[in-house]
Structure formats: structure tokens, C-alpha cells
Write a protein that binds this DNA or RNA. Structure first.
Lengths: 194, 194
DNA sequence: GCGTTTGTGTAGCGAGCACTACAGATGGAA
DNA sequence: TTCCATCTGTAGTGCTCGCTACACAAACGC
């Protein structure tokens, strides 16, 4: 055991609570009182364990990626491009409308437009959204090489289209759209696939 | 002329400036210093002319609807459903990537997730997005009655799909996507139409 | 001229923000 | 038992937030 007084709270659980607040209120809308209240700790404990609000958001974002957005990589591993997109849409719908968490997607609603202070956060979220789009594009390029997608397909255009639908569904979910609604959207969106 | 000292600034121009700040930083991210600086007035003038920050946002939102989202109703007036959707997508792309204004759509990036204070704003934006979707649904219902759309079409599902694509494009635009990129997205999205 | 009405600029209000100084508490090491 | 390292709760810090009191300025009718 480490030297010194042991930490009286579970940093993983506290991070989950913080993530919940950030998902619900966004980066700017989440105040430190909101965060400490949800995490069940006092400010000094938060700062000792996580640095500051920006660093806490970064750690919550990493946790979000591995816990709630893990479906993304799994989906891309499906054997065909169509199955991959199906899994992507289904997974995103489940994640964005999960009853246990605030609706929507942290990458979209965390900080779409914000003040100057939060601009690094906005840029990081933008970067991660673009990263996801790039992964999908690579997957489509592979499918094209394998003959799974027709030779006249544009992987870049298709990836941007699917990403746009995913992001639109995040907005819909934030606005209260239900699972059934979004499944129909996904079904319609899938019709463009060959 | 009205009695009393005349107002020394143009309320319409000031409102346009405020709208620009709200589009760039969202409702929460736009501080009163940001607003008064952009509008070229002092706080008391702002409060005398517009009420408070929330009321100012409401007026800016109305102005946004008539000035930058007027394409929406025009698009729905097109003779066919396909033309309507084409005009809708093209208009949204022009609006969201207009060089003279911040990128994106105020209805989407104004307040997707926010603190408790801004919750009425978030709810109002959600309401207006749903309103747009409903208008589109009504247009599809009309098209179905006219035989412009096949009888097995679901106007509700199609409207939600198109709205989702529009909202996704708003997120893409906020992230820096260009006009060409979004035109290709629109082209792909249009393929689901009969 | 005068009084009334309305708008303007200065200057500052209370409240909440992100963040921290500090003293006491709690463990292992010597 | 003492020392030291670390964490904890209390109680703040300075700052910016949205907003306003107040005195002065500029138009009107009389």
C-alpha cells in the first residue's frame, strides 16, 4: 500500500459520476459544485486526484471512449461493410438512448459552441469526431479493395455520410428521440448502401 | 418621433451582432461582455432594449429564423418532395457554411447540453427543431396524397431521417466541414428517396 | 425658459465561478 | 512513539458572471 493517508473514495466511480454530469450538462454547463456533489467529494480531493476541470473532462472523455464508445471499433471489425454500418448505427442508438445515462453523445453535445475558455475542449471533441470518421473511411477502403463495396464507391464520401447520420442521431437523442424512432432513421439511412 | 432621448444605436444591427456571438459561442458561452462589446453598447442599453440575456437570445432566435432559416419554408413550397428535400439540403448547407457567419446552426449548437439556468433555452431549441421536422412531415404527407411519393412511404420516418441528416450536417459544419463535403453528403442522403 | 420622458455611461451590486491555503486526520516507516 | 507523506473538510481566495442604481444627457410639449 502506498504511503500516506489513503484516498477515501473510488476514483473510477467518481470519474463515472463526473462523466454523467458532463454528458448531461456539457463542459461549460457542468459547474464544480455539480461535479463535486455528484462525485461525493470536496473540491480539494477533486483537484488532488484529477488536476482541474479541464483535465477531469479529458479523463472522463477517455473513459467515455472505452466504456460507452467501445462499440465503434467492434462494429468496424464486422466482416462486411454493411454489417459494420448496421452495427455502428445500432450501437450508437443503444449508447445515445441508454436509460442509465443522459441522452446523446458526449462528442457532440460536450461543447459544440462555447466560450473562449472551453475552446481547447471543443477542438479536442472535433478532433475525435474526425478520428472516428477516418476509421470508418479506412474500413470502407478495405471493403472496396476486397470487392465488398463496388469500385465506383467513394469511401470518404460514404464515411462522411454515415458519420453525419450518427451525429444527427446524437442531436435527435439529445432532443428526446426514442430508440424506435432512431432505428427507423438507421433503417432509412442504410438504404443508400449497395 | 417618440418623446424622450432617442436611442443612439440601431437595434436591428445590434441584434445581428448579438446573433453572431450566440451562433459562435452558444447561449452559455456568450457572456454579457462579449455581447455588449460586439453590439457596441453598454449593459444598461442592452437591458433597456431587450430585457435580459434570455430575452435577447429569444429575439436573436426569431431573427435567425426569418433571416437565415427562411430557406426552410421556401424549400417546402417546391412542387415535388424530391425538389423540396434538395432545396432543404442545399439551403442548409449554404446557411451553415456561409462565410459571413459562424459555422453551424443555432438550433443545434445554441444549447445542446447546458446547465440548469439555460434549460429553458435548450427546451425552446428542441421545440423548434421538432417544429421543423413536423413541417417536413406534413409536406411528405401532402406528397403522398398527391401520388408524388409511393403509398408505402412513411412521411414521419422520412421526415425524421431528413431532419437527422440536416442536424448531422450542422454538427459537421461546426466541426469545420466545407461546402463541397456537405454537398456530397446531401447527394448520398438523397439516394434513399424513391 | 421649464418639466417630463427616455436613453446613456460610470461604477458597482450580490452571487457563483474555478480553484486553493491551511489545519487536522490517517496511514506506513523508523 | 515519533516522523513523514498523503488525503480530507472548512473556509476561504480573486474573478467574472448577469444585472442595476444613479446621475447626467438629449429629445419632447408647454
Amino acid at each position: 500500500m502506498a504511503i500516506g493517508r489513503p484516498r477515501a473514495f473510488d476514483t473510477e466511480k467518481a470519474l463515472d459520476q463526473a462523466l454523467g454530469v458532463f454528458r448531461e450538462k456539457g463542459y461549460e454547463g457542468a459547474s464544480l459544485s455539480d461535479l463535486t456533489a455528484a462525485m461525493g467529494i470536496n473540491p480539494p480531493s477533486l483537484y488532488a486526484a484529477f488536476g482541474n476541470k479541464e483535465a477531469l473532462f479529458g479523463k472522463a472523455l477517455d473513459r467515455y471512449a472505452e466504456r460507452h464508445a467501445g462499440f465503434y471499433k467492434d462494429a468496424l471489425a464486422r466482416p462486411t461493410a454493411r454489417e459494420a454500418v448496421e452495427a455502428l448505427l445500432a450501437g450508437a442508438i443503444d449508447m445515445a438512448t441508454d436509460a442509465g445515462s443522459p441522452r446523446g453523445c458526449l462528442l457532440v453535445s460536450g461543447a459544440l459552441a462555447c466560450g473562449d475558455d472551453a475552446d481547447p475542449i471543443r477542438a479536442e471533441l472535433t478532433r475525435r469526431r474526425a478520428e472516428g470518421e477516418l476509421m470508418l473511411r479506412r474500413r470502407f477502403e478495405q471493403a472496396k479493395r476486397e470487392g465488398d463495396l463496388p469500385p465506383d464507391t467513394s469511401p470518404a464520401d460514404l464515411a462522411r455520410y454515415v458519420t453525419t447520420v450518427l451525429q444527427g442521431m446524437a442531436v435527435q437523442a439529445a432532443g428526446g428521440a426514442g430508440r424506435k424512432d432512431l432505428r427507423r432513421v438507421a433503417e432509412t439511412a442504410l438504404r443508400v448502401l449497395p
